[in-house]
C-alpha cells in the first residue's frame, strides 16, 4: 500500500503516513475553514490501511495550532484508529506532542485522552 504524504500549506498540516512502518504523523497547523475537505483523503487512506495494517500503529500528533473545525476531524481520525485497534490486527498508540509552555495544546491532548479509548503519551517537544 502507498504512503500518504501531504505537504503543508498556510492552513493545513504535514501528513506523513507510512503504511509499512505503521507511523502516522500529523505536524504543523490545521486551521482550514472547511476541514472535512482536507481530511477526506486521510480518512480514505486509514480505511484502506485498516485492511492490512502494520502490527503496531503509532500516530504522532505534533500540532502548533488547530481550529475547532479540525478538532472534530482529528477525533474522527482517532475513532478510525479505535476501530482498527478493535480488529486486533494492530496495536495502536497515540503520541501527542506540544511545545514547552503551551498549556492550551497540552490540555487539548488531555481532552482527547478522556474521549478516545486509545493509550496516549502526552509529551513536551525537545
Amino acid at each position: 500500500m502507498e504512503n500518504l504524504i501531504i505537504e503543508p500549506s498556510v492552513k493545513t498540516p504535514t501528513i506523513n503516513f507510512y503504511a509499512d512502518k505503521g507511523i502516522l504523523e500529523i505536524k504543523g497547523k490545521s486551521i482550514p475553514e472547511n476541514s472535512i475537505e482536507f481530511y477526506r483523503p486521510v480518512y480514505e487512506w486509514l480505511d484502506k490501511y485498516a485492511q492490512s495494517p502494520a502490527t503496531a500503529t503509532n500516530i504522532i500528533v505534533q500540532l502548533e495550532y488547530f481550529n475547532t473545525s479540525s478538532s472534530k476531524c482529528l477525533l474522527d481520525v482517532f475513532r478510525k484508529l479505535e476501530i482498527l485497534q478493535g480488529y486486533g490486527k494492530s496495536t495502536v498508540t497515540v503520541t501527542w506532542m506540544y511545545e514547552e509552555e503551551d498549556e492550551d495544546m497540552m490540555e487539548a491532548g488531555e481532552d482527547y485522552q478522556t474521549i478516545v479509548k486509545l493509550p496516549f503519551t502526552i509529551t513536551k517537544m525537545v
Binding site: 475553514e33 472547511n34 476541514s35 472535512i36 475547532t68 473545525s69 478538532s71 472534530k72 476531524c73
Partner: peptide, 10 residues
Amino acid sequence: LSDKGGAGLG
C-alpha cells in the same frame, strides 16, 4: 460536524 465546518465549538 456540519457541512459548513462549524461544530458549535468555536
